[in-house]
Simulated assay, not measured.
Amino acid sequence: MPNPRIKNEKQYQALVEKGYSKEKSARIANTPDAGEKGGKARPYEEWTKEDLLKQAVKVGIKGRSYMNKKALINSLRNN
């Protein structure tokens, strides 16, 4: 049964099946541009470190305050 609090149920289920926790899957599936494709978002290299840190908070990356911009980009792409 679909959860009304999940904005992108299909993406949420795919993430859970991939092994992500339910909490992390929900956070990712509930981001404003979740699951949208088409190059609308700027590449992470164009983001400020502050913006990268905010995104890292949204997706729950631990140790982010110690990371430089390159490490933040790598963590965001691989989590």
Rank of each mutant, 00 (worst) to 15 (best):
26 A>S: 14
21 S>M: 02
57 V>P: 00
46 E>K: 15
71 A>S: 13
1 M>S: 11
4 P>F: 03
55 Q>S: 06
48 T>K: 02
55 Q>K: 12
28 I>E: 00
25 S>C: 09
36 E>Y: 06
18 K>Q: 14
75 S>K: 15
79 N>Q: 07
53 L>Y: 05
37 K>P: 00
18 K>S: 10
64 R>T: 01
79 N>W: 05
10 K>L: 09
38 G>A: 09
36 E>V: 12
31 T>G: 07
56 A>F: 13
39 G>L: 11
68 N>P: 04
76 L>A: 06
57 V>Q: 10
28 I>T: 02
56 A>G: 03
79 N>I: 07
34 A>F: 02
40 K>V: 06
50 E>H: 11
19 G>I: 02
74 N>I: 00
52 L>S: 03
78 N>D: 13
71 A>V: 01
34 A>L: 10
1 M>F: 04
15 L>E: 04
1 M>L: 09
6 I>Y: 01
14 A>H: 06
78 N>C: 03
76 L>N: 02
69 K>E: 07
60 G>Y: 01
16 V>I: 14
28 I>R: 00
27 R>W: 12
41 A>M: 12
3 N>D: 15
55 Q>C: 05
49 K>V: 12
8 N>W: 07
67 M>Y: 15
30 N>L: 07
58 K>S: 06
1 M>E: 14
39 G>A: 13
23 E>F: 03
35 G>C: 09
12 Y>W: 10
23 E>Y: 00
51 D>S: 11
3 N>G: 03
49 K>F: 03
49 K>H: 12
26 A>T: 10
63 G>W: 10
9 E>L: 08
39 G>I: 08
79 N>A: 10
32 P>Q: 11
74 N>M: 08
4 P>N: 04
52 L>D: 01
29 A>E: 00
44 Y>M: 06
63 G>H: 08
62 K>T: 12
2 P>L: 08
63 G>C: 06
34 A>N: 03
38 G>S: 11
61 I>Q: 02
74 N>W: 05
24 K>A: 13
61 I>D: 05
13 Q>H: 11
41 A>K: 13
70 K>T: 07
57 V>R: 09
78 N>A: 02
13 Q>Y: 01
43 P>G: 08
14 A>V: 02
78 N>Q: 11
19 G>S: 06
55 Q>D: 06
68 N>V: 06
78 N>R: 10
8 N>L: 11
58 K>M: 05
26 A>P: 08
78 N>P: 03
42 R>D: 11
16 V>M: 07
4 P>W: 07
75 S>L: 01
73 I>L: 04
16 V>W: 02
62 K>L: 05
44 Y>R: 10
68 N>W: 08
71 A>L: 12
16 V>K: 08
3 N>Y: 02
67 M>W: 13
14 A>D: 13
5 R>W: 01
22 K>L: 07
48 T>G: 05
5 R>D: 15
42 R>W: 00
55 Q>E: 15
61 I>H: 04
24 K>G: 00
54 K>L: 07
75 S>G: 07
77 R>I: 01
